[in-house]
């Protein structure tokens, strides 16, 4: 049992009607209203007073819109509930679609830009590859022409072939010389020589015997770049040919302990 008078005097019921109590206090008042008729009566009187004050505060005899108008808007809302919601959803849907559309346009625009950039880059690469291929083709064509030329030269009856055999430093090595005495043209086939070490280069010597006189026919730098056949001009009456390994730039006279191959010209 609570002291009803004390409870009423506390002022909690006024605040209850005003709606400023928290949830717990409101529920407490609710339960007491169920239990104590005096409290219920008191609450109803507060309510009545507050309503009356609000009613008479309107000295302008202000009239609310007719109830029919309210019902009209309720009915409108009730009957049009589906189309209204549908239209409002349409709006949302449209905006969502539009947003997705814009986004995807933006995305695809971006990806198009990216693709375009990629395409440009690819084109440049392709251009580069094309020009490289063209260069390769030209080189290949030249090489083929050269090879044809070399083959034709080697096959010619006028061409003299001189085999150079491996010497002490590299017994397994070999080389060959194709020489047209009439034109002084000469090809050296270096296929049987090991690759020249760093800072070294093979040098070709024309030799005449009795006394042994070496004449430099030049360094064979092209072999270091991978060429098998190197064209040399030789106007000497060479009796033999030797290939030595020399420092880059060549030597004035052959370094004999670096004599790789040597071959005698056949005296016809």
């Amino acid at each position: 049992m609570i002291d009803v008078k004390e409870y009423i005097d506390s002022g909690i019921l006024e605040l209850y009607v005003a709606g400023t109590l928290n949830r717990e206090d409101s529920y407490e008042v609710y339960t007491y209203i169920q239990q104590y008729p005096e409290i219920k009566e008191y609450v109803k009187n507060i309510e009545h007073t507050v309503i009356k004050i609000a009613e008479i505060s309107n000295h302008q005899e202000m009239k609310a819109h007719p109830f029919a108008k309210l019902m009209n808007s309720i009915n409108k809302k009730e009957t049009k509930v589906i189309p209204i919601q549908w239209y409002s959803y349409m709006g949302w849907a449209a905006s969502v679609v539009l947003t997705i559309g814009i986004f995807s346009l933006y995305t695809s625009n971006n990806s198009l830009k990216t693709n375009l950039t990629k395409q440009i880059a690819t084109n440049q690469t392709l251009d580069n590859q094309k020009s490289t291929i063209q260069q390769d083709l030209i080189a290949t064509k030249i090489a083929l022409d050269t090879k044809d030329e070399v083959i034709a030269f080697m096959a010619s009856k006028k061409t003299l072939k001189i085999d150079l055999a491996g010497q002490t430093i590299a017994p397994e090595s070999y080389a060959a010389i194709y020489w047209d005495k009439d034109t002084d043209e000469m090809y050296v086939d270096l296929n049987g020589l090991p690759p020249a070490p760093e800072g070294k280069v093979y040098q070709l010597w024309s030799l005449t015997l009795n006394p042994l006189t070496p004449t430099s026919l030049g360094t064979l730098d092209a072999y270091n770049n991978g060429d098998r056949f190197i064209k040399v001009s030789n106007s000497n009456t060479s009796q033999a040919f030797g290939i030595t390994l020399e420092p880059v730039g060549g030597s004035a006279s052959p370094t004999l302990d670096q004599l790789y191959t040597l071959g005698m010209t056949k005296i016809s």
């Binding site: 309503i51 609000a54 009613e55 505060s57 309107n58 609310a64 109830f67 309210l70 808007s73 309720i74």
Partner: peptide, 30 residues
């Protein structure tokens, strides 16, 4: 019928505008 007149008073007390208060009352009962 029991409450609309007092509620109009409450609304008007805050808004001080007759037309606006009537519209808000309508909204409240909706």
């Amino acid at each position: 019928n029991m409450y609309h007149k007092s509620m109009l008073g409450v609304i008007y007390n805050i808004l001080q505008d007759e037309d606006l208060s009537k519209d808000i009352l309508q909204e409240v009962f909706l």
